[in-house]
Amino acid sequence: MICINGEKFEKDEIVLLDYLETNRINPKRIAIEMNGEILPKSQFNEVVFKSGDIVEIVNFVGGG
């Protein structure tokens, strides 16, 4: 099971870029915390979440 933003997915793997595309999330406007650590932006293109991973994708919206 993989947990992303509190939602549980019964999968062994989720490719980050696939998840972002499916949910129409712009990769330029996010920060990702994975298992308590920040995921460097340079890894966004290759990272694959595995079973047991707990992920928080912070989406920045405009306004300030």
Binding site: K28, R29, F60, G64
Partner: peptide
Amino acid sequence: EAFDDPDCKAMLVN
């Protein structure tokens, strides 16, 4: 981080 633009927000935070 107190920007208006979301790309700038993400850039600074990351």
